[in-house]
Computed example of a mutant assay.
Amino acid sequence: MQLPTVDFAEFKDGDSKDALEIGQKLFAACRDVGFAYLVNTGIPQEQIDEMFNWSAKLFALPIETKLKASHPPEGWKHRGYSGVGREQVSQLVFDPDELRAIRTGKKILSNNWIPDEDFPGFQSHAMSFYNTCRGFQLSTLLPALALGLDLPKDFFLRYHEANENQLRLLHYPGAPTSVFESGEKGRIGAHTDFGTATLLFQDDCGGLEVETPSQPGVFMPVPPQPGTVVFNIGDFLMRWSNDTLKSTLHRVRAPPRREDDQSDGMTKERFSMAYFMGADKEKIVECLPGCFGPKKPKKYEPIEAGEYINMRLNATY
């Protein structure tokens, strides 16, 4: 099995029969799998490649330079550089101080940059790439999703005005293949994303796996495909849709050793870039129209978007 592919070439302004069919195909992918390959997004491959080059240069910087933009100690201040092993995937938060910080307020997060004199050009290129992803999100992706759900095409735009998104540059260092095969080390364990949805850009290393919808606990590979962007639904949108759309477990493993392996027993480093989309924290959402009825009652109460994320981090949902 492989992920469905959604082609946006004919979406244009979202008012045509072709646009509706694209939206319906995106909806089907979100309902049945929770993941899809997207093509013809309008995000230039040259810009993606350039951002991967910047990411490689970033992670190759001396540690003392990277730490000039160190991630703060508080988990909810999700900005800056996190070193190898500092961040672990978890759906739960138990530290009392961190929980208190999460509960007590809606905090505006400022970006945390390495000073431009230490890494000239990075900030402008990163922001340009971020804005390109946001352009696709607002002009095409969210309208297509709304059409697929038989909603006005601007429906989701009303809930995504405040730019509550994150661009994360991810680096998985190379290591001896034996430590991955023995289970001594991994890359990132099975998890779901918290927010509305995610765009994931992969290099050519491979390793991403998604849980097979019909076989819980069985994961299928999602190999890099030139010219595609991987898209997936987050937990917030799954709740918002009354579990009509699927937020699916996924993980990253070291790619299997090939018969023609010429790597001297080393698994090469992997780079990926994730653009996480989030709803405006102060917007209250309730079950999407068309996702409930006499045979499918509402499972969840209306909730403020920021409160939902806090609940997830508080381990009470």
Rank of each mutant, 00 (worst) to 15 (best):
L151I: 03
T196H: 07
F231T: 10
Q47E: 14
A56D: 14
L288W: 11
E164A: 12
E74N: 14
L199D: 04
T5L: 15
L92F: 06
G234R: 10
A197W: 07
P289S: 03
C291S: 01
A305Y: 03
A19N: 00
L92M: 05
K66I: 00
H171R: 15
A29V: 09
K106Q: 15
P302I: 12
A56S: 10
T192L: 08
E304A: 09
T104A: 13
C30G: 07
C30W: 04
P221R: 05
F27Y: 15
G42T: 14
T192R: 14
L147A: 09
G85R: 11
Q123L: 07
R251A: 08
G183N: 04
P216W: 05
G183M: 02
Q215G: 08
E301C: 09
C205G: 09
F271V: 06
M51S: 06
E269G: 12
Y159D: 03
K17C: 00
E269N: 10
R100G: 10
L313H: 11
T140H: 13
N53L: 11
S55E: 06
I303F: 09
D18N: 11
I108W: 06
D18W: 00
Q123T: 12
W113S: 08
E211F: 03
H125S: 14
A146R: 00
E184A: 00
A29S: 13
M277W: 05
G148D: 03
G105I: 03
F129L: 09
L138Y: 10
H160D: 12
P223H: 09
N163S: 11
I303Q: 08
